[in-house]
C-alpha cells in the first residue's frame, strides 16, 4: 500500500458516493447512464469473486464489499426506485459493442486460462470502457449537471492516481501487472478530453457543463 494507491481508492469511493447521494437527494437519475452503472456493477461482481478464494487484507475485503454494495444500490436507484426519472431515450449506447470485444479479449489475453482469471481479466478490460455509455450520453444531450461532472472527475482522478501507484510499485517493488497497467492507461486516456472540459468550463464557469 502506498499513498497513490490509497488516494486512488478514496477517490474511487468518493466518486461512487457522490453519484449515489446525488440520485438519492434529488430523487432523480436524470443525466445518468444506467448502462454505465450496470457495467460497473458487472465489473465489481466479476473481479471480486476472489473474496471467496483468497484473503489479501481486511482493508481489501471491506473495500470490495463496499464497492459491490454501493454499485448495486446505484443500479437499484436508477432502474427501480427512481426509474421514472431515468433518461432511457438518451442512454442508447450499444453495450454489446463493448461486451463482445471485451469477452473475446479476456479469453485471448490473460494470466491463466482459468474461470476466475478470465473473469478478472474481463473485469479489467470492461472497467476501461464502462464509462463510455455515460460519456456518450453527455455528448448526445450536449450537457451534464455539475454533480455528474464532479463524479466523472473523481473517477478520472482515481485512474490517474492508480497510474502513479503503478509507477511507484514498479520502482519500489518491481511489481508490474501488464494487463491492469495497459488497460488502465487506455481507460485514463478516455478521461483526458473530459478533464480538459471540466477544468475550462466547470471550475472556471459555474453550474452545468455544456459542450460547444
Amino acid at each position: 500500500m502506498n499513498i497513490f494507491r490509497l488516494a486512488g481508492d478514496v477517490s474511487h469511493l468518493v466518486a461512487i458516493i457522490i453519484l449515489l447521494l446525488k440520485i438519492w437527494r434529488s430523487k432523480s437519475c436524470a443525466g445518468i447512464s444506467g448502462k454505465s452503472q450496470v457495467l460497473f456493477a458487472l465489473v465489481f461482481s466479476t473481479r471480486y469473486l476472489d473474496l471467496f478464494t483468497v484473503f489479501v487484507s481486511v482493508y481489501n475485503v471491506v473495500m470490495k464489499v463496499v464497492f459491490l454494495a454501493l454499485s448495486y444500490a446505484t443500479v437499484y436507484l436508477i432502474y427501480m426506485r427512481f426509474r421514472n426519472s431515468y433518461d432511457s431515450e438518451n442512454d442508447t449506447f450499444r453495450v454489446e459493442f463493448l461486451l463482445v470485444p471485451v469477452i473475446g479479449l479476456s479469453f485471448l489475453e490473460n494470466y491463466a486460462f482459468t474461470p476466475l482469471e478470465i473473469l478478472w481479466t474481463f473485469s479489467i478490460f470492461l472497467e476501461a470502457v464502462a464509462i463510455m455509455p455515460q460519456l456518450f450520453m453527455i455528448t448526445k444531450t450536449g450537457e451534464a449537471e455539475s454533480i455528474t461532472t464532479h463524479y466523472l472527475f473523481f473517477l478520472g482522478l482515481y485512474r490517474a492516481l492508480y497510474i502513479a501507484n503503478w509507477v511507484w510499485r514498479y520502482h519500489m517493488e518491481g511489481f508490474f501487472d501488464q494487463i491492469a497497467v495497459v488497460s488502465g492507461v487506455v481507460q485514463t486516456i478516455f478521461y483526458c478530453d473530459f478533464f480538459y472540459l471540466y477544468v475550462t468550463r466547470v471550475l472556471r464557469g459555474k453550474g452545468k457543463m455544456s459542450l460547444p
Partner: peptide, 10 residues
C-alpha cells in the same frame, strides 16, 4: 512480475 490469482489491487 504478477502472481496469478493474487490480485491485491481493487
Amino acid at each position: 512480475g504478477m502472481k496469478v490469482e493474487e490480485h491485491d489491487e481493487l
